[in-house]
Design a binder for these strands. Structure first.
Lengths: 251, 251
DNA sequence: CGCGCAAGTAATGTATACAGAAGGTACTCA
DNA sequence: TGAGTACCTTCTGTATACATTACTTGCGCG
């Protein structure tokens, strides 16, 4: 079947949203820079209507900021903003873990999570850990966290966590790859995996406060990774999203 | 100056958004009901383009749900959803209070909050409390909570709290008016005001954990109000948003 | 030489026309 | 009588044209 010009199956709006998001995260647009709709029409190849829709959605996503007089600009983030976003995500995931513990979960619901954990165990046993193993870890981690969130069985909370994780630097896997270049890499991964095991154990034993606390601390690993990566200033290219940081980056 | 057909100063999109939100919250549309764009065009009087924009924003706001095949429907909420949304808001406000306590706030920043508290004190001294006093309380409460949130000086958190409070039944003032019809009304108001004083005290003394805990508990007053109002089933007309609840309401 | 105003230009907000798809209904066949 | 199919209606998604508003540039006046 002919499939020129990208997928014909997805809507123009989604296509524009993806294209613009990539453009922003790859640093194609400077923070604070106004996004011209016509310019966006040229780069995305779709009409103004879906472009406008995509811009609105990217604003809600947090990547854009509305200009009072009209239009949108690329949002700029401080390092503090990012750290706060991580703490925020950890707090929400903590709430989800507490809900799961307090309300109880069936062994059947826990099954896919334990599978994840076992697969991750296979990875972290390596020393040193290969880059491919890191990629696998990112994938497994990106599977584990949503599963954990869903254990809360709370649609409003799940929704809010999704929104809080939409910002790439706030997502559970946002800074794992940055970590791969660090000497502490293996150690941090072992700790993260221990957090995973502890939160499942806490949920199984209906220990709400413990489940909540460990998820908060778990998120703070991401904050540590960010700080280490910024200080070392090595392999920052692994983190395209950092193009949005105000002071740093911007070579 | 002529001002027919509503304000000419606000955009059509905002006008449509307000009109549709009122329509939904007043129960004009049943939960689960599909919102036809053309029908929305007729009721709002604006064209399809701003109507579509308004629908997208109302979806992000949480009042609408996207239908996979296209279009939007009015979202339905369970009582549990609402209770979770309140707990969620309390958790976020707790985080804001903790940030404020940990990072410290100046006496100048606290001034407007203390003014609020003093004004509320003047209200809760009455016994019994008039309906007008309740309205004044709602207004003051709606001023206090955003001020408290801003003490965190964390734009990402402020943004997330705004979004969590957008749902009318999750907002800090969502169930205060319902409470006015209850025999426990005065007592609950006194407790709420004590929470306000305690959180400010905790922030002043840099007691982060205490500030966080009290805001969580403070939000649970709203949950109590909701449960009492639903059990008593009196003055439910004060809560138009309850038209969105799945099982209840729906006469 | 600097500030302010005006005019031109460009960009956004809005309206509408068109195409494609989804859903409903009626009819036919088993 | 029930199920399946085909057609028709109605809706959404997209494109584009138009109007209004904001911004910029250049000129004139102080």
């Amino acid at each position: 079947m002919p499939e020129r010009e990208a997928d014909r199956s997805v809507s123009q709006t989604v296509r524009a949203q993806l294209a613009l998001r990539d453009l922003i995260l790859s640093g194609g647009l400077r923070p604070g820079e106004r996004i011209s709709e016509l310019q966006a029409v040229e780069t995305t190849g779709v009409s103004r209507t879906p472009v406008r829709m995509a811009l609105v959605r990217l604003e809600e996503e947090g990547l854009l900021e509305a200009i009072p007089s009209g239009g949108f600009m690329v949002k700029a983030f401080s390092e503090r903003d990012i750290l706060d976003s991580i703490e925020l995500r950890g707090t929400l995931e903590g709430l989800a873990a507490r809900f799961a513990a307090e309300r109880g979960v069936s062994a059947r619901d826990l099954e896919p999570l334990k599978e994840c954990l076992n697969e991750i165990d296979g990875l972290v046993r390596q020393d040193p850990i290969s880059v491919e193993a890191f990629s696998s870890y990112v994938a497994l981690n990106a599977r584990f966290h949503p599963l954990l969130t869903e254990l809360s069985r709370s649609p409003p909370l799940i929704r809010q966590i999704d929104r809080a994780s939409a910002l790439p630097f706030a997502s559970p896997s946002g800074f794992v790859m940055a970590q791969s270049a660090l000497p502490e890499a293996h150690q941090i991964l072992l700790i993260a995996q221990d957090h995973h095991r502890v939160v499942i154990d806490a949920i199984e034993n209906r220990e709400g406060a413990r489940a909540e606390a460990i998820m908060r601390e778990h998120a703070r690993l991401a904050a540590r990774n960010l700080r280490l990566a910024l200080r070392n200033r090595t392999h920052l290219d692994l983190l395209p999203a950092l193009a949005l940081i105000k002071s740093a980056a911007a070579d």
